[in-house]
Simulated assay, not measured.
Amino acid sequence: MATESATTALSVNVNKIAVLRNSRGGIEPDVVRAAHTCLAAGAQGITVHPRPDRRHITAEDVVALVGLTAQFQVELNIEGNPFAPPRVGYPGLMDLCAQLRPAQVTLVPDSDDQLTSDHGFDFERDSVRLAPLVRQLKAWDCRVSLFVDAGCTGLPTAVAMGADRVELYTGPYAAAWPAGDPQDTLGLFRETALRAGQLGLGVNAGHDLSQDNLGLFLAEVPNVQEVSIGHALISEALYDGLETTVRRYLDITTDIRRR
């Protein structure tokens, strides 16, 4: 099969900067300053996932990042569970989006007690509740992406609800990587991405992607428009510096030879 050059946008998830800050209180390390460094190094966007327990990114951080991303003319992607009710310190995902109108909203079915997102939506169960929320977000001019598992059979439902993109949960691929045999999972991701494209859905990807495993994923899985990377990128930056690490990711996401 012929190959062609392609570029995938890198959106840096800065949640882990806020985790470190929150461990001591105060303002250091500064989330906005870290995001500024990422964008100055060439990242094409910033991702945040404010949670109701305020364990990392807070609603106040998101407000500050809106101004920064506007300054750089890049996209802010807000992730979250639209079903999680508001509470003290957390206005709820929909209210936050109503106020800030981010370029992209990624809906994720995480529960309050989850350490991190680890599965996609069950559209058979969730579509009735999701559909009006997708419509509302689009009325606010937000692109809507839905978090899905590789092999998801509900992509036509995502289209019917009006979603613009799906984000492939890449945890299973990353988990298979250390064993040196990720091809079985890659086949499922490739099939899902192709199916999404045929249905008119854009494709994003994220979770546990790293400098080690990202290149193969992008070479094997077609049509990936954006990756959001946080944990690995921030971890690697502890050794090599934030600017250097972002530039290394951009080397991977730019001009990858695609199948």
Rank of each mutant, 00 (worst) to 15 (best):
R101Y: 12
K138F: 09
A98R: 05
S145G: 15
L96D: 04
V134L: 02
Q114M: 14
D118F: 11
G92D: 06
G67T: 14
P91N: 10
F121Q: 06
P52A: 15
L107H: 01
V108W: 03
A131P: 01
E60S: 10
P82H: 02
R125D: 02
A84M: 07
T69Y: 07
E124I: 10
A131Y: 03
D141Q: 15
D61M: 11
A98L: 05
R101H: 15
F123H: 01
R87D: 10
S127T: 01
G89D: 04
A98P: 01
V108H: 02
V62N: 07
R135M: 14
Q99H: 07
P50G: 08
I78F: 02
E124P: 00
Q104V: 15
L96I: 11
V66K: 10
L100G: 07
L133E: 03
S117F: 04
R51C: 09
H119Q: 06
L65M: 14
M94C: 07
L65R: 10
P86A: 12
A70N: 15
V63L: 13
M94K: 07
L137P: 01
V128H: 10
L137Q: 06
R125G: 04
R125S: 09
R54D: 06
A70E: 15
L137M: 05
V128Q: 14
S145C: 06
D118W: 10
V63C: 11
G89E: 03
R101G: 11
L96G: 01
P102M: 11
F83T: 00
Q104C: 14
Q114H: 10
L76Q: 05
I78V: 13
N77D: 09
F72M: 09
R55K: 12
V108L: 13
P50R: 02
L146V: 07
Q136D: 06
A139K: 11
R135E: 12
L137W: 01
Y90N: 04
L65F: 13
L133R: 03
R54A: 11
G67P: 13
Q73P: 06
I78E: 01
L137D: 07
G120E: 00
R51E: 03
P50A: 09
T58V: 08
V134S: 04
R129F: 08
P85G: 00
P82R: 00
E79N: 04
P109W: 01
A139T: 12
L93R: 09
R125I: 05
D110Q: 07
L68R: 04
D113A: 15
Q71G: 14
R143W: 04
F83N: 01
D95G: 08
S145N: 08
L68C: 05
P86V: 02
Q73L: 09
C97S: 07
R101W: 10
D118N: 13
L93P: 00
R143G: 12
G92F: 11
H119D: 05
D53V: 14
P132M: 02
P85V: 04
T116V: 12
H56E: 04
F121K: 02
H56Q: 09
V88N: 08
C97Q: 09
F123W: 01
G92S: 03
E124N: 08
D95W: 08
E60T: 11
P91T: 05
Q99D: 13
A59C: 14
C142E: 11
V74T: 15
A84N: 03
G89C: 09
L65N: 13
V62D: 00
T106E: 03
S145P: 00
V66R: 13
C97K: 12
Q99A: 15
Q99S: 12
D122Y: 05
D61W: 15
V108G: 11
